[in-house]
Simulated assay, not measured.
Amino acid sequence: MPGLGSCTSIINLRFQEGQRGKGRQFVDRTFPPDSSSLEDLPELSSRQESQVKWLRPAEILKNQNNSKEAIFCTKGASRFDFGQGAVGNCWFLAAISSLTFRKALMVQVVPMDQNFNNHAGIFHFRFWRFGKWVDVVIDDYLPLMPRCADQACKDFCGGVNVDYKLQEVHSAGHDDKLWSSLSNASSCNSMICCGTAQKGGVLVNTVSNSGIVDAHAYSVTAVTEINYRGSKVRLVRLFNPWGRKEWTGNWSDKSDRWQRVSPNDRAKCEDRDDGEFWMELKDFCLHFSMLFICCENPNFIDGDVTCQWQSQTYDGKWTAGRSAGGSLSNRSFETNPQYRMKVNIIDKSEKEDKNIVLTLMQKPRQENRKGNQLTQLGSASLRFHQG
């Protein structure tokens, strides 16, 4: 993990690449404040795109007749600090809301030693990309839209991620295993996000009668078990990046079920229109399609928070005629990149103990900013030898 002082050379390099002169603030040439940086926004019409204005924070305040000085961040960050606007970036905002629970990780991604005092219009952030923390340096231009105000998690923490198809898990009767994973992930401070399916195969954020938005990303902010009429009820708390539109069914903010539980349990529900709400686990599985869990280490898999993992990263590539052996059915399969790992100590008394976790990543060939070309990634082949 790079220290705060290790970014200076990168920032200076971007100063040279950008545009800055005497009395002028930094302008990022790789992400210029114009329509070319907006890419394809199906949520906006051509007319709306043409009305987008790029302004610096001080200019935004001036346009609002606000005499206050721009502030980078005060009193930390909260999931309630933002609301999704016109752009369909719920997947990104859902990950950010999870990130706000991880204070130490938050300051790694968003260095807090930055402000608007005598600044040159330049800020930097860190993202984990293929085994390395990479500084991304930008100017402070913000696009203002003409209206009121699985991967992102990986880029924020660079950890291990697990996906669940919720309806399949529920239909197979694996609610106990799912709850165990959610509970472990929550206790390990993992980043947890989920998403709803498209309705009718169309990518439109329609709001159902239950208050759940179709084709939309949410973050899971807590899990808990409460006593209700002599039985345990498993509840999942979710946050809608819109900052509004909540679940209206059982255990929602206004559900009368909260009046039939203990005062301590009742205090967990806050009746306010902020986009955050509780759902029972079975309703969660029925109304949401996917669950994504990501953490810096694999402790959330078995809940063993005392375990100290050792990590290794191997870089390889498929080269035609040399290391692109193809599938297992090909004679040339053995020429694929191979790596050997050895586990020296195994505690046989822990039947569910996990000893090796593999994650595969493929770097995209970015031919242009609007699309990445990926080669089909197969599965890893493992051979175990005991002795």
Rank of each mutant, 00 (worst) to 15 (best):
I346H: 07
I192Y: 03
L41M: 11
I293G: 01
D347A: 02
R56Q: 13
M1C: 11
C153S: 15
T100E: 04
R229L: 13
E39N: 12
E49C: 14
Q16G: 06
Q19P: 03
P42F: 01
F300P: 08
S98H: 04
F101E: 14
F239D: 01
G387I: 07
G316A: 14
E49K: 15
K268V: 05
W318Q: 08
F284L: 00
T100R: 05
T313D: 11
D140A: 01
Q48C: 05
P263R: 06
E59D: 13
L374R: 10
S67K: 09
C148D: 13
V233C: 08
T319G: 01
W133A: 08
Q362T: 02
D135C: 09
F82D: 01
D175W: 00
W133S: 11
C157L: 14
A320E: 11
T196S: 15
G200D: 07
R237T: 10
Q308C: 04
P143D: 03
N250G: 10
N264C: 08
C188T: 14
E352T: 12
R229S: 13
G211D: 09
D163E: 15
N12V: 07
W258F: 04
H385A: 13
A94C: 02
N250H: 13
G378Y: 04
F26T: 06
V162Q: 13
Y141F: 15
W251K: 00
D273F: 09
C295H: 15
I60D: 02
D139R: 10
Q373H: 12
E270A: 11
C157F: 06
R234E: 14
S181V: 01
E280R: 07
D353M: 10
P298E: 04
C285H: 00
V169E: 03
P143N: 03
M145V: 01
K62V: 01
Q376P: 03
F333S: 03
E69N: 03
K103D: 07
W247K: 07
V357D: 02
I293R: 05
N355V: 11
P146M: 05
V110W: 15
N161D: 14
W242D: 04
D113F: 00
A222M: 12
F26S: 09
A152E: 07
F130D: 08
V207W: 08
G159V: 07
D150I: 06
C90L: 01
G201D: 00
S311M: 14
G378I: 03
W128A: 06
G243T: 02
G249H: 12
D353A: 15
R47A: 15
F31E: 12
N115G: 00
T375K: 10
M106S: 10
R260W: 05
N344I: 10
A320N: 05
N250R: 14
G316Q: 07
S36E: 15
D273T: 09
W278D: 05
N63S: 11
T306C: 10
T319N: 12
K245F: 10
K363D: 07
N344V: 12
V52P: 01
V134W: 03
W278G: 06
K177I: 01
N297E: 14
M361C: 09
H174N: 09
R331N: 13
I192S: 02
A197T: 12
G326K: 06
